[in-house]
Simulated scan of single mutants.
Amino acid sequence: MSELEDISHHIHDRLSALQRVLDLSAAELPQNKIKKLGQELFALERLLEEFENCVGRQKEQLKHLKELEELFQKDEKDVHHMKDNIPAHMPRKKGSANGNEPVMTQNDAAGHQLAQPENVKKTSKSYVREMEFITTPEFESIPQYMKGRVSYEQLNAAVQSINTAAAAKYKILHQSLKTLNNHARKLHQRFKDQETKDTKGQYFVVEDDIREFTQTKVDKRFQGILNMLRHCQRLRELRGGGLTRYMLL
């Protein structure tokens, strides 16, 4: 802006000088004055050309600044949208897994208080596989006929319920029988009876586990959710002995 102001002032001074020359030229101008007037006009023409170039540069800069402003406003809008739409369940980064070894997460799920008396030492911390939450792109990839009226939040709430049931189940399995009360011992035996050679090294739950350790209703709607989780490769079914085992992937 300072450059434009300087050129503008300079042009104004030149015009003022020319005006004075013309005011003094009531009589016929001498040859040297005419020459001086021509030089001033030529210089003024160059100044005007420079002024136009400067205005052009300023217009380009203004255009660039407006483009930057638009980009900034778009980024600001995107940030506010992300801030207002943070999903309730954030997917976790997968850890490494070798062969059939499960991806392990610390088991701190709260189930029934089925465990040990206060005077018994706690067992070492155990770990179980947890099903990862469904991402938005995964949810959108599920066919509409399969989704029905189930929302993204409801689907991930079911994931949380299955993880809670698995955590509570394997918390009991990883404890010594001596530390368990009668009800927990019965559950421990039931869990053992449900295992097969195909479930060795794997983590699974059955419908009774979900009923036992969560408030989730295992109904027709929940069966539809399980189909969606199979579609998203979060679990697979293993049937046998009149029982359906949901293997966590």
Rank of each mutant, 00 (worst) to 15 (best):
D75Q: 13
T135Y: 03
K93M: 09
L47V: 00
N100K: 14
L62D: 13
I86T: 11
H10M: 06
H188N: 06
I225Q: 10
V218D: 05
G38V: 09
A88P: 01
A158V: 15
S151F: 03
M146Q: 11
R129W: 08
R46K: 11
E140N: 00
T179F: 01
R236Q: 04
S96I: 08
E5M: 13
G56V: 05
E207F: 10
V150C: 04
I172H: 03
K63D: 09
E60R: 10
A110F: 07
K122Y: 08
L22I: 12
E195G: 08
S25T: 06
Q160Y: 14
I7N: 05
I11M: 13
T105D: 12
G224Q: 02
Q175K: 05
G201Q: 10
T123K: 11
Q116L: 14
T216S: 08
L18K: 02
K122V: 15
E101L: 14
D23S: 10
R221P: 05
L15E: 15
I7F: 10
E101R: 14
R129C: 14
K93V: 01
A184S: 13
A167H: 07
E130P: 00
G56F: 04
L155K: 02
I172C: 07
F139H: 07
V128K: 07
R46Q: 08
A97Q: 12
D209G: 03
L235F: 03
I210V: 15
R14A: 00
E69G: 07
L173P: 04
L235G: 03
K192Q: 07
S126M: 12
V128I: 14
S25P: 01
F133V: 11
K217Y: 07
L62S: 06
Y145K: 12
